[in-house]
Amino acid sequence: MNNGSGQSGAGIILREGIRFAVRSTPYRQILDVPEYQTGDMGKNDRVLDIGANVGAFCLRAARISAHVTAVEPLTADLLEENIVLNDEAIRVIRGGLGTGQPAEIIWDECRMTVPTYTLRMLISLAGGCDFLKCDAEGAEWLIHPHDLEGIRRIEMELHLPPICPPPNPALLDYIGEHYTFSIDRSPVYSPLGVMGILHATRE
């Protein structure tokens, strides 16, 4: 293929050598996430990937860090299959970011009621978090600002109505006070419902 990927009996192999299983699914399978920056991720960083989809971010992160946890409410079966294909030691938490109560989550043609966890709960389950990647389709605005304490780096997709409630000013204020940050309006996304990608480093 001219995009640098190939196919084998194990599925699609991207140019980095990362493998993805080929399955017909009612949801999009995200295989690459170049909008997220990982240049300063360290081998000892505890990485938390919220909204892991089928593993595009966490599989790449696992090549840098030995402590990666992926959180995924809907596509966890295929995510776990891809983790096995790549022989990576990534922990998977089946559920979503939220209030701690079950919630209905919709992704393309998939609709399911799943357990949700606050960010504090997810960090506890993961054994800590130094590097947070979050793509939670608007659930990021449910994060309690002080749950970010101790997180050195944040890569987060920020969403806007109509796909989610209005942004939480307290979260933005906390990030502005404690992090050096920028928001990249990535061209790979429609501007409808997406503010952009937050890149933040704790000061």
Rank of each mutant, 00 (worst) to 15 (best):
I175Y: 01
R185F: 02
C164W: 02
E137Y: 07
L97E: 06
C129K: 01
L198T: 01
N2V: 12
L79A: 05
L85T: 04
E104N: 09
L85R: 06
E109P: 05
E104R: 12
A76D: 13
R152A: 14
C110I: 14
D87I: 11
C134Y: 00
D45L: 05
G42W: 00
I12P: 02
R153Y: 10
S24I: 10
A103E: 14
A56V: 07
A126V: 02
L85W: 06
E177S: 13
L171G: 05
L74T: 00
G11V: 04
A66N: 13
S5I: 10
E35W: 14
L171T: 05
L198H: 01
G11P: 02
W141L: 05
R60L: 14
E88R: 13
E104C: 14
D173K: 09
P161F: 00
P161V: 00
R202Q: 14
C58D: 08
K133V: 08
G39D: 14
D173F: 09
L132V: 02
I64R: 04
L142F: 08
G55L: 10
D87R: 12
D45F: 03
L74E: 01
R94Q: 12
E109F: 10
W107T: 09
V84Y: 09
R111L: 11
L119Y: 06
S190T: 11
V33A: 15
E137V: 01
A10R: 10
V22E: 15
A52M: 08
V47D: 02
T180W: 01
D184H: 10
K43F: 14
L192Y: 05
W107F: 15
I105D: 06
G128I: 01
L142H: 11
P115F: 07
P26N: 12
N44A: 15
G39T: 07
N86L: 11
A170I: 04
A61S: 10
L119T: 00
N82E: 10
I151E: 07
R153T: 11
Q29D: 11
